[in-house]
């Protein structure tokens, strides 16, 4: 299979690297039209990937315009080739890329809007989860509460920005019909991105809530998450907020690390 592998490597190099002449000479039946045809394949490949980015980042495209978006997308594709046969996986690094893309530097909030859109993209395809297993929680002895670790609903993500990205996102939604101005000094946003049934919404979190949910979402133990939030936000109602996250299925599961380890050892 040496020949096939070499041919495919060279083909990909011609598509991504942009130098098609060597490959056209070596492998394409009609060398003259071959170069042109390889360019056509590059155009189709880059076009497919650009369309995938366009689908995941519609607000970014509206903010910068189609021409700029297409230019940024082609540069991005060259630097971050697709790593999956499923185009829905493509574009995870786009926010990071935009933060280092000199032509976009004037729009300081653009990378954060892109991060928000990627969170929405992931949430769109995430699993539908049942309610929290309250019965199982009721069987946990009180002495183990501090050791519990919780699981964030897969259709929930947390996004933080020092810019009003919720407002920016909302006024660029297709069904938005209101005032289209944004005050960039209005302040940042700590957001819970969440899909309920099939609708995605952005919900602002208070400072304590953000710290607490971030810690729980990172699967810290309950006692560590409480300690962290209470140092920064004395008087924060951890029990009340936990009840809310559980009742609202923002948290959907829990486990006891020590008990789980013990189980797997005995298995």
């Amino acid at each position: 299979m040496r020949f096939l592998r070499e041919l495919q490597r060279d083909f990909m190099e011609a598509v991504y690297g942009g130098d098609e002449s060597g490959f056209a000479r070596k492998a394409v039946a009609d060398e003259f039209s071959g170069r042109e045809r390889l360019r056509l394949y590059r155009h189709i490949a880059f076009g497919n990937m650009t369309d995938a980015l366009r689908a995941a980042y519609p607000v970014v495209e509206q903010l910068v315009g189609k021409e700029f978006f297409d230019g940024a997308a082609w540069e991005f594709i060259r630097r971050y080739p697709s790593r999956s046969g499923d185009l829905h996986d493509f574009g995870a690094e786009f926010a990071g890329f935009l933060s280092r893309f000199p032509s976009a530097a004037i729009l300081e909030y653009l990378p954060d809007v892109a991060r928000l859109e990627w969170a929405c993209h992931k949430v769109f395809f995430a699993a539908d989860r049942d309610a929290f297993p309250l019965d199982r929680l009721a069987q946990v002895p009180q002495s183990r509460y501090g050791h519990l670790r919780f699981k964030l609903n897969p259709a929930c993500r947390l996004v933080r920005s020092r810019f009003p990205i919720r407002r920016i996102w909302e006024i660029h939604q297709p069904d938005y019909r209101g005032e289209r101005t944004v005050d960039l000094n209005e302040g940042g946003a700590d957001l819970l991105v969440r899909r309920r049934e099939r609708v995605i919404g952005l919900f602002p979190l208070g400072p304590g809530e953000w710290d607490f949910l971030s810690a729980l979402g990172a699967e810290q133990t309950f006692s560590k998450a409480c300690g962290g939030v209470l140092i920064k936000n004395p008087g924060f109602d951890v029990a009340g907020r936990l009840r809310h996250f559980v009742a609202d299925a923002i948290l959907v599961d829990f486990y006891d690390e020590r008990k789980r380890r013990g189980k797997s050892k005995s298995a």
């Binding site: 096939l4 598509v15 995938a52 080739p81 697709s82 999956s84 046969g85």
Partner: peptide, 18 residues
């Protein structure tokens, strides 16, 4: 694609015995 890098389009094969 090959070696973990994809073009996400339908590329033709060389029609050989291999």
């Amino acid at each position: 694609g090959v070696d973990g890098r994809y073009s996400n389009c339908l590329l033709p094969l060389p029609y050989t015995e291999e």
